[in-house]
Write a protein that binds this DNA or RNA. Structure first.
Length: 235
DNA sequence: GCGACAG
DNA sequence: ATCTTGTCGC
């Protein structure tokens, strides 16, 4: 487990944070297909918080894309770097997530984020931001439609419908389980929407949420517990 | 001005 | 995100 502080020069106000997004947005790459689904590595990242103790724990879990077996996993703990503000989630999650990614012993391949990429008020959500900073291909898979609208996809797993910001398509509502609420997929960096959807399908053979985020979610919660409890770690 | 709003 | 018991079902 790595320990991280808030990076020097990290935005302190919402105004500064929005300015950073407006500046970095130009560096997002949207014309690459990204890694083919089912090959190489796929890495899930997620974060858990303890606002009381000003603690944040992140986890990165690398899966073999073909078998979905765990190849490697890391955690990082730090101080909360930004309050939760809708549209500025990346400033709260990225420092600790980066530390976890940096600690991995192998290349992460495609990174799957718990949240949005292009589907964002300024078209620069967590997944896009993390992609630009790391250079890695990223996608976002969110559990809620945020401020966007969509027509309900068909009831069968694999059905998808456009996720809309007004008339602009910013992602897809994708049904990953028959008759269950869809997830909301958007492109982050260096991946096409079609490939993002295919990856999400490959990562959901059994549950609504991708194995990557399920594994990362469980691990960062454990890491936060261990950091809070300060007792014998589970592993 | 008011309400809504990824995690 | 997080606060939180039992409960229905495979």
């Amino acid at each position: 487990m790595t320990t991280v502080g808030v990076p020097a020069g990290w935005p302190a106000t919402e105004e500064e944070a929005r300015a950073v997004q407006d500046r970095l947005r130009a560096r997002v790459v949207l014309d690459e297909p990204g890694p083919p689904p089912g090959t190489g590595h796929v890495t899930g990242v997620d974060v858990a918080y303890d606002d009381e103790r000003d603690l944040v724990a992140a986890a990165a879990v690398v899966l073999d894309a073909a078998t979905l077996e765990v190849v490697a996993e890391t955690t990082a703990v730090g101080r909360i770097s930004f309050p939760y503000v809708p549209g500025l989630l990346a400033f709260r999650e990225i420092p600790t997530v980066r530390a976890a990614l940096d600690a991995l012993p192998c290349p992460p391949g495609l990174v799957v984020c718990d949240g949005y990429g292009l589907a964002h008020p300024r078209r620069f959500g967590l997944a896009s931001h993390l992609g630009v900073l790391t250079g890695l291909p990223t996608i976002g898979v969110a559990k809620n439609p945020f401020t966007f609208t969509y027509d309900d996809p068909g009831p069968a797993r694999g059905s998808a419908a456009p996720l809309l910001a007004g008339t602009e398509e910013v992602g897809s509502a994708l049904r990953t389980r028959d008759g269950v609420k869809p997830v909301f997929v958007s492109v982050g960096h260096r991946v096409s929407l079609g490939n993002a959807l295919a990856h999400t399908m490959a990562l959901t053979p059994e549950y609504r949420l991708p194995e990557t985020t399920r594994r990362a979610d469980a691990l960062c919660r454990r890491a936060l517990q261990d950091a809070t409890t300060r007792q014998a770690p589970t592993s």
